[in-house]
């Protein structure tokens, strides 16, 4: 991490122990938060090392730490000066399964939601579609179901409808359900089909627009 040296790292121990155990081979969200495990939450307090500092009130990265091993999956939460909250999910590669990312989120959110008002959550940035691990081919499969074999990307309205019925939406809704937030729609940029190790998949930058239930 380029700016790791500039970040102030806090590892919350003791009373903030999460007591969560996240299986690396992926367990369902319901199996997280099991008491007695040695998993803690790591925080990176982000300062002006990040661009956009003029518009940002504060930002924190949350991640799980098990023993000496910190997860590469980071949940960045930002609050703007206009009190809008945004979440940026970042795994860095496809090494961490999507299912595990959801499990880690479910473990991180109880603490994160105390520091940031999820009621003010406006968007969840999920990054490039092809970097959502095993979810990526499922999104492409849904695309094919809706739009056939053509690689010509339809208009945003149709993509939005497709994504709202996709597992991406179902998963985000499930993980945000305890906070009474739901996916209202999607924003996206530069959708296209690209070659991945799994074949040709839909790629592009995507973010979910959130609203209160």
């Amino acid at each position: 991490m380029q700016h790791a040296g500039k970040f102030f790292i806090l590892l919350i121990f003791g009373s903030l122990l999460l007591h969560a155990k996240i299986a690396r081979n992926g367990e369902s969200i319901a199996q997280t938060n099991q008491p007695g495990a040695d998993t803690t939450i790591g925080l990176l307090l982000i300062g002006n090392e990040w661009p956009g500092g003029a518009d940002r009130k504060r930002a924190t990265a949350y991640f799980l730490v098990t023993g000496n091993d910190s997860s590469a999956f980071r949940c960045y939460i930002t609050e703007s000066k206009s009190a809008q909250v945004g979440i940026d999910l970042r795994a860095g590669s496809n090494a961490i399964p999507w299912k595990q990312r959801l499990a880690e989120l479910a473990a991180l959110f109880p603490d994160a939601s105390k520091a940031y008002s999820f009621d003010s959550l406006k968007n969840v940035y999920t990054g490039r579609l092809t970097e959502t691990a095993e979810l990526s081919p499922l999104i492409t499969a849904d695309y094919r179901k809706y739009f056939g074999k053509s690689n010509k990307i339809p208009t945003g309205t149709w993509i939005n409808k497709m994504l709202l019925k996709n597992k991406l939406t179902a998963d985000l809704n499930q993980v945000f359900l305890p906070y009474k937030m739901t996916v209202a729609g999607y924003g996206f940029e530069k959708l296209f089909f690209t070659n991945t190790g799994r074949g040709k998949e839909l790629d592009g930058v995507v973010w979910a627009k959130m609203q209160k239930l």
Binding site: P51, T78, R90
Partner: peptide
């Protein structure tokens, strides 16, 4: 309508 926070890591991606 784009989220107003972009890390350098994300920009590289």
């Amino acid at each position: 309508g784009r989220p107003a926070h972009t890390s350098i890591e994300e920009a590289r991606g």
